[in-house]
Amino acid sequence: MANFKISYREDTALFQNLWVKSWLGIFIAAMIVLPFLLSRYQLSILNGMGIAVIGALGLNLLIGYTGQISLGHGAFVAIGAYTTGLLAGTLGVPFIVALPVSGTTAALLSLIVGVPSLRLKGLYLALGTLAFGFIIEYVLFHWDLTRGDTGMAVPKIGAGGFFIETELQFFYLIMFFAALATLVAKNLARTKIGRSFVAIRDRDIAAEAMGISLSKYKIMAFAVSAFYAGVAGCLLAYYQKWIVPGNFDISLSIAYIAMIVLGGMGTILGSILGAILITGIPYGIVYLTDALRGTYPNLSGLIVDLKLGIFGLVIVLTLLFEPQGLVGIYRRIKVYWKTWPFKY
């Protein structure tokens, strides 16, 4: 299908052509119908993925678009979740207020790493954010307000007689916010802000020379990414109904990085694919072991033994054979079909 663009407006359009629009329509329809065909367990898997998509989008805006490395994304998810826990659990604040406040709190606290990021670069920034993550985890463990590793309860969403509590209801809620987050991210990426982010990533000194305020946009990138993480944390808190500091340790930060690296840095689609893959691996192992348990009990036991290694192996193999991530695979397949039967 030919795809010519005649105007700049067309080039930056959110949905580039009818083809994309119709696929999107089918996708939305599928998302509405799908939950009726799935079990509660399968819905719970999708819900986990939806929350991860929001967090991964935020991290990709920071790392993939702006080039600012953060190994402390889990800390911002924790800040969002604990803000929700304290607001909703202790003060009884409703969801509509708790959600933006959680995001905003995370964004405000992101200044703690955002401002130093003006001085720190690359690896030094990475380790600085890692340290920030450890310090947040330490505070959650040792402050009476956050109740140590016993954790705290988060009430249900809703008022009067109407509550969002089943997996199905959460599915629509989470998917709504995941879709919203995707739209906002996509919009952000095609505006001046997004282009400034990319300019900073590609060469920050050149960007500054062209009149892009480094301090403004770097801090903005941290704040937006933390806002996303805070929203993801808020949804996670409501969804899990109980939060403990152990939910947000370094493995969460690493998982988020794995999502965007495996999915594809600097692409919206990559964040989504990566979030689905990384969240999905443990469930894939569950289905595999259950399927093998009856016929090959030893093999299924061995897979449980190798669980950690399988996770590592998927990451390593994907990156060795496709360093651009899943988006790279997707693009290649697309190009292949577009040009078929020719090679180029």
Binding site: I69, I254, I257, L308, G309, P323
Partner: peptide
Amino acid sequence: EPLFSTIMVTVGLASILTC
């Protein structure tokens, strides 16, 4: 390859070695 891809490979390597 980008810094981050190599970092993720070492992270994956770490879990493979532990396993």
